[in-house]
């Protein structure tokens, strides 16, 4: 379990994270979604005690991370796959971590095998690894201490499609065995495919927390008409608001029947009328991304 309460981080006058609160329950995968620079990594670093928060607190397994006697035994971390000594071999990186964890050396070989880095790859220096291989090595190290919580920052970066599917399976399996997973990404589709819960963050603030299916369901219908302007007028007449969707058509936060009747009353020909299936979430996310890229510095 991870509990984040009113976490905030300010750098000088700039606010990186602003009053962020959420919970990750055992047995679930929580997707932490936001555009680059939204405050995902800063929040994760505050959870792990790397960055002192300006305000608020975070606990893992009901304990502040820094107070865990042997944190690697409880929490598996992958914060930055490239933060590894380029001169060490993949195997050596895991052996060093296993030594700190007082773990068995046999697990190193087992995990190298599990993440697909067994054999010659294990004895190559990390400097010669691709980003995908570094991610795999990072995941192996996160799993080394048999943790009950996983915190992964953009673990899918650099993985090939096969690797992404593999990682989803691994995380699902981990959560199904009552593990807690917090996983960040800047790609909605990636999170959608694996997460149970979702925390959307933008500009340092949580903009949408909740169950994945609820967030996806709460976005109304997508409607497309032969004459979009006529449709807008028809909707307006019955007091409904249509917002343009990225793939064309309008998003309306209303039941399909209400939209259909409004169109029929105004003799508007509809080409499409269906549940939006998270298109609203995507809209929200794209708005965030657009807003962020303008004023973003770091």
């Amino acid at each position: 379990m991870i509990e984040v309460e009113h976490l905030a981080k300010r750098y000088g006058g700039q606010t990186a994270v602003d009053d962020v609160s959420f919970r990750c329950e055992p047995g679930t995968i929580t997707g932490f979604l936001g555009p680059n620079g939204a405050g995902k990594s800063t929040t994760m670093r505050m959870i792990c005690g790397l960055t002192p928060p300006s305000a608020g607190s975070a606990t893992v397994l009901e304990t502040a991370y820094r107070e865990l006697p042997n944190p690697g035994r409880h929490v598996g971390l992958l914060l930055d796959a490239s933060a590894q000594h380029k001169g060490r071999t993949g195997e050596e990186v895991l052996i060093l971590a296993a030594e700190v964890l007082a773990g068995e050396r046999a697990r190193v070989a087992e995990l190298l095998d599990r993440v697909g880095l067994a054999g010659p790859a294990a004895r190559k220096r990390v400097g010669a690894y691709s980003l995908g291989m570094r991610q795999r090595l990072g995941i192996a190290r996160a799993l080394l201490g048999e943790p009950s919580v996983l915190i992964l920052d953009e673990p899918a970066n650099g993985l090939d499609p096969e690797g992404i599917v593999w990682m989803r399976g691994l995380l699902r399996d981990f959560a199904d065995r009552a593990g807690t997973v917090l996983l960040s990404s800047h790609l909605l589709r990636e999170i959608e495919a694996v997460a149970d819960d979702l925390v959307v963050i933008g500009g340092g603030k949580v903009v949408a927390p909740g169950r994945m299916e609820e967030l996806l369901a709460a976005t109304g219908v997508l409607v497309r008409a032969l004459d979009p302007r006529a449709l807008l007028r028809a909707l307006d007449e019955v007091g409904l608001v249509g917002t343009p969707a990225t793939g064309g058509g309008l998003l309306v936060d209303a039941p399909a029947e209400a939209v259909g009747r409004a169109a029929a009353d105004a003799d508007v020909v509809l080409l499409e009328l269906r549940p939006a299936d998270g298109a609203g979430l995507e809209e929200l996310f794209l708005t965030l991304t657009a807003g962020e890229t303008i004023g973003e510095v770091a």
Partner: peptide, 24 residues
């Protein structure tokens, strides 16, 4: 057995001794 251990279970673990850290 290790692999099948529920991921949600936690056991008390002692921190690494200073001797272990020196070795590392």
């Amino acid at each position: 057995e290790q692999r099948e251990r529920p991921a949600g279970t936690t056991r008390p673990f002692e921190g690494p001794s200073i001797g272990r850290l020196v070795k590392v």
